[in-house]
Amino acid sequence: MAGPTTFQSGNNSSSHDEESGRRQYNPYQDLNIPYRTLYDLPTSPEFLFEEESRAQRRSWGENLTYYTGLGYLGGSVAGASVGFRRATIAAEPRDSFKIRTNRILNSCGQDGRRFGNRMGVIGLLFAGMESGMVELRGTDDWINTVVAGLGTGTAFRAAGGVRSAAVAGALGGLMAAGAVAGRQVMKRYVPI
């Protein structure tokens, strides 16, 4: 039978454990696994090429994917909520639970798909125009975002006529300027 000093280790035991002759069991003690290097991950992004680490913005492909996906997701959620509201207002008192549920699901799906597709196209146009402006001007600043907003509104409503395109372009430019101003305010006053 092993004595109390057999299980003692100077590094892992506390003073109470040493007095009682016991130590904490560590199942990884004898294994030479570099678990600290596996789980202590770096907090900064890692890049494959040196040029990527110097760039302070997303590439055009990442920008395109981000804005299109964000627009589609936001539009789908907004459209589904509009469809839900419309279906609940149109419900009749004598409808069964199955009919109401079917009406709500159909309306949410139809409006969500319609709004999501529109917002996805707007995100696609905005990302393409913003990346094009960055390439054209050679700098990334707020002017590119505002001009991309103007161009996106104009291009999206161009089929509706000159007046409709001009109003949509002005609205798009104002929204982009508001987003830039909001981002600057968030950077300044909200600690992240």
Rank of each mutant, 00 (worst) to 15 (best):
G178V: 11
R163D: 11
G161I: 02
A176I: 14
G172M: 04
L174Q: 06
L174A: 12
G173K: 02
G161T: 09
R157T: 09
V167S: 09
A159I: 11
A165M: 05
A179V: 15
A179E: 13
G161E: 08
M186L: 15
K187G: 14
T154S: 11
G169S: 05
A158C: 11
F156L: 06
Q184D: 14
M186R: 15
A168H: 05
R163E: 10
G178P: 09
F156E: 06
G153Y: 01
A155C: 08
A177L: 14
G153L: 07
A158R: 00
R183V: 10
T154A: 08
A165D: 02
A168Y: 04
A155D: 00
G182C: 13
S164W: 03
L171N: 03
M175G: 05
A159K: 11
V167Q: 04
A158D: 02
R163M: 15
G161W: 01
G153H: 00
R183M: 15
V180G: 07
K187P: 00
A176Q: 03
A181N: 00
A177D: 00
A181P: 09
F156T: 05
K187V: 00
G160A: 12
V162A: 10
G178R: 03
M186W: 14
R157L: 12
A165Q: 04
R183I: 13
V162T: 09
G172W: 04
L174M: 13
R183W: 10
F156Q: 07
G153Q: 06
G172Y: 04
T152W: 05
G169Q: 00
L171Q: 04
M175S: 12
A158M: 01
R157H: 11
A181C: 13
M186I: 12
R183G: 14
R157Y: 06
A181G: 12
S164Y: 01
F156I: 07
G153S: 02
V162R: 05
G173T: 02
G173I: 00
A158Q: 05
G161F: 00
R163I: 15
A176F: 02
T154H: 06
A166C: 08
A166I: 08
G161C: 02
V180W: 10
G160Q: 13
Q184Y: 12
A155T: 06
G160F: 03
A181R: 12
G172H: 02
V167Y: 04
K187A: 12
G172K: 06
G160T: 07
A179K: 14
S164F: 05
G182K: 07
K187N: 14
R163T: 15
G161V: 03
K187M: 13
T152G: 06
G182Q: 06
G169H: 05
R163Y: 10
G161P: 00
A158S: 00
A155S: 11
A155H: 08
G182E: 12
G161M: 08
G173H: 02
M186S: 15
M175E: 01
G178F: 05
S164T: 03
R157K: 15
M175D: 07
V167W: 01
A159F: 06
A158N: 01
G172S: 08
Q184A: 15
V180A: 15
A177K: 03
A168P: 07
G182A: 10
A166Q: 08
M175T: 13
